[in-house]
Amino acid sequence: MPDDTEAARVRRPRMTPDREMDLLNAALDVLREVGYEGLSMDLIASRARCSKATLYRMWPGKPQLVAAALYATRPMKPEEIDTGTLRGDLLTMVELLATQAAKDTALISAMAHAVLTDEELATAVRTSLVEPWSDDLIGVVDRAVERGELASRPAAANFLPQLILSVTVTRPLLSGGLADADFLTSCVDHALLPALLHS
């Protein structure tokens, strides 16, 4: 016969996808306000109006929760983009990035420092965010191969995730402005696309 704790667990309703997104968005809202070092599961639970136990049932700890939130709320989902051409797919991706630049550039820059100093966070970000996102991005190139636009996957495809992320995040440092759609479109036409087509 199950004890009271197990019975309560069995009776507990599953979290809906919408509620899970509420928790992930709450985590990022607090992260933007206090930074990674100041972030705690207590603060996230308070903002999300849930218990810490609810958070820990979904994620082992703060690093995994943050990585999951960054992946789930990413502005572009390359696996859902298929315009019929490689250039069209790349332009769609960077346009979506540009719409989120004001909100996400500072967040990603701050996370970069935290990743360098927190190995558990670095592991969570690599496995839950960077690797799946990189696979999705390279998948855009693979679809171009399947359509016959490219004979095979070019070597430059392996650098596509780093290039897109770096030009987006470093734009304020190098030029004093955010990576808007015009800038990123120019990057696609003059850097990314030539590298993919001719490598």
Rank of each mutant, 00 (worst) to 15 (best):
S40H: 11
S40I: 01
M41T: 08
M41V: 07
M41F: 08
D42M: 15
D42P: 07
D42N: 09
D42I: 06
L43N: 07
L43K: 15
L43E: 05
L43C: 04
L43Y: 05
I44T: 06
I44V: 15
I44M: 03
A45L: 15
A45S: 15
A45V: 15
A45H: 07
A45Y: 08
A45K: 12
A45P: 11
S46V: 12
S46N: 10
S46A: 15
R47A: 14
R47S: 12
R47Q: 13
R47L: 11
R47M: 12
R47I: 08
A48D: 08
A48H: 04
R49W: 03
R49D: 03
R49G: 12
C50P: 08
C50Y: 12
C50K: 09
C50G: 06
C50I: 10
S51C: 10
S51E: 07
S51H: 14
S51L: 07
K52A: 10
K52C: 15
K52E: 11
K52S: 07
K52D: 09
K52G: 11
A53R: 04
A53D: 11
T54P: 13
T54G: 03
T54H: 11
T54Q: 14
T54N: 14
T54V: 12
T54F: 08
L55H: 02
L55D: 01
L55M: 12
Y56C: 07
Y56G: 00
Y56A: 08
R57W: 04
R57P: 01
M58Y: 10
M58V: 01
W59V: 04
W59C: 05
W59G: 00
W59E: 01
P60G: 02
P60L: 06
P60D: 00
G61P: 02
G61H: 04
G61L: 02
G61E: 00
G61V: 01
G61Y: 02
G61T: 00
G61R: 05
K62L: 01
K62Y: 00
K62H: 01
K62P: 04
K62I: 07
P63F: 03
P63Y: 10
P63K: 04
Q64V: 12
Q64F: 05
Q64H: 12
L65W: 00
L65E: 02
L65V: 09
L65C: 07
L65I: 05
L65H: 07
V66A: 04
A67S: 15
A67M: 00
A67F: 05
A67I: 03
A67C: 13
A68P: 02
A68H: 03
A68L: 00
A68K: 04
A68M: 03
A68R: 10
A68D: 00
A69C: 01
A69M: 00
A69E: 03
A69P: 04
A69R: 01
L70W: 10
L70H: 05
L70A: 15
L70K: 05
L70G: 04
Y71G: 07
Y71V: 05
Y71R: 13
Y71Q: 09
Y71F: 14
A72T: 07
A72Y: 06
A72N: 05
A72D: 13
A72S: 08
A72I: 02
A72R: 03
T73F: 08
T73M: 06
T73G: 04
R74A: 15
R74E: 13
R74N: 09
P75C: 11
P75I: 09
P75V: 06
P75A: 13
M76Q: 13
M76S: 15
M76F: 15
M76L: 13
